[in-house]
Amino acid sequence: MRSVSKYFDGGDTVANYKLDMEIDDGEFVVFLGPSGCGKTTALRMIAGLEDPSDGEIYFDDDRVDGTPPADRNVAMVFQNYALYPHMTVRENIEYPLKVRGVPPEERDERVAQVAELLHIEDQLSSDPGEISGGQRQRTSLARAIVREPSVFLLDEPLSNLDAKLRLEMRSELKRIQNELGITTVYVTHNQEEAMSMGDKIVVLNDGTIRQVAEPQELYRRPRTTWVAKFIGSPPMNLFEGANNDGTVQLDGGNSLPTTAETSSPTVSLGVRPEDIALSTEPPDTDWTVPGTVKTVEPLGEYVLVNVEVGGSVVNVKVSHTDAGPGDPVHLTFDPEDAYLYDENGELVA
């Protein structure tokens, strides 16, 4: 497969609405979105388990919508692994080969290879019911990999694992994908997984694509206020204000100079919690907003300070602070770290 391009135009009002995207060969793409956003439906349409009600899907230059899943050369890993309970781990892994009429000697060889790759050689003769969640996950991955598919589809594969195992499998998955170079579509609602694994992240909400970007760009330059508020923990702070040619009149009273140009009368200024500095003395800059500390949460790695600014709460991540609840403070940030969104929530600059 040289270049995978998929284009769908799902007309289904409930699930997906006019999705347009292209996935390059060998890319690790993550569909990220809250539950019910249509990411799984999108994946199932790629797999062929669901037919798009409108629009077209292409693998390379071949139109595949309408092609049954068996003929698409896709492999899928399901959220609950979907291992065949009456077959051993080995039989599970070799099933797709068996169905495709691969001769037994070759089957054995390939099963041995993937079992080694996934470190489940010792479990091959066990039943799925006898092995741990992590091993089940690996078996399910092995079953998908053994076919050497051109597209690898993963539907929240890590959500049923405990936290430690999830972390382990995350890097494992990434390693395998790097090794095999198979085009991968990964569905998750966990942004950490998305950020750490994806070459490209597709943010979905209400069945539509909100942004397609590399993880860093997605984090650094969220294109809409919705994405800004969705990505990051805690998410980006948004200061509401009015647009006065060249300055932003914040609801809190302050006026901040801006270089971005927009005709929108009301705007919001987005700043990540870690890009805000906290001081008790008024700083010598225009980019500052006064507020009152509400709560201070020391989290070890950093201290999360909730500051009340003009009626809304702003999250600030600092390494250390002397301020306590009720103290008046000043929030400052670099204009470089602030993003201006217009009244429709679109990024201006």
Binding site: L49, A70, A75, M76, F78, A82, P85, V99, R100
Partner: peptide
């Protein structure tokens, strides 16, 4: 579990094989 049958579909099993296997 319907996922088993979907998985078999993706694995390439036709109607008859899904029933038999």
């Amino acid at each position: 579990d319907p996922a088993l049958l979907e998985s078999a579909r993706v694995d390439g099993a036709g109607r008859f094989r899904r029933f038999k296997d």
